[in-house]
């Protein structure tokens, strides 16, 4: 509470900056766990690695409440339409992280069953390498996304 006697406390900024800052600080991921990477995503969210330190531990079960989709695992041909539908249900602005080798490129399963890279279905902002990426890698991926958002590179 500002004292009446103190000098006026005013912060000037641009609307864009304020918007990007708030977008960066409230990134709520939708749980889109598919395979092995989903287990690492869960491990990132729980006690030992504690994603809450970065203010994005609020994993939302409903895509309507989320603005970040972490595609964690291999995307099969059968799952692809579902994935796209979930993405379409998310409210703008939204971002996508492709977690792991399978989601990014199909990984070691270059065959009939898998979509060879989730970027064929949804636009991907950050690719996290690894099979599966450790919790640190995923955190780095999310922090990279935050940096990109706040710098205006990915502002929406």
């Amino acid at each position: 509470m500002a004292q009446l006697t103190s000098p006026p406390q005013i912060l000037t900024t641009t609307l864009g900056k304020a918007m990007r800052w708030s977008q960066q600080q409230s990134m709520w991921p939708a749980t889109f766990g598919l395979a092995c990477c989903a287990i690492e995503m869960m491990a990132t969210g729980t006690a030992h690695n504690d994603l809450a330190r970065f203010g994005m531990e609020v994993f939302r079960a409903s895509p309507r409440q989320a603005d970040l989709m972490v595609v964690a695992g291999r995307v099969s041909q059968k799952m692809a339409p579902v994935l796209r539908q979930v993405y379409d249900q998310m409210a703008d602005p939204k971002w996508v992280i492709s977690m792991g080798a399978c989601a990014s490129t199909g990984g070691m399963f270059n065959n009939y069953a898998l979509v060879q890279g989730v970027d064929q279905i949804v636009p991907v902002d950050v690719y996290v390498p690894g099979c599966p990426p450790g919790p640190q890698s995923l955190m780095h991926g999310i922090l990279t996304l935050q940096d990109k958002v706040v710098s205006g590179e990915l502002a929406r």
């Binding site: 490129t105 199909g106 270059n110 065959n111 009939y112 069953a113 060879q116």
Partner: peptide, 9 residues
């Protein structure tokens, strides 16, 4: 006789 379905990397 069903192809593996690999796409060139």
């Amino acid at each position: 006789d069903f192809e593996v379905g690999a796409v060139p990397v």
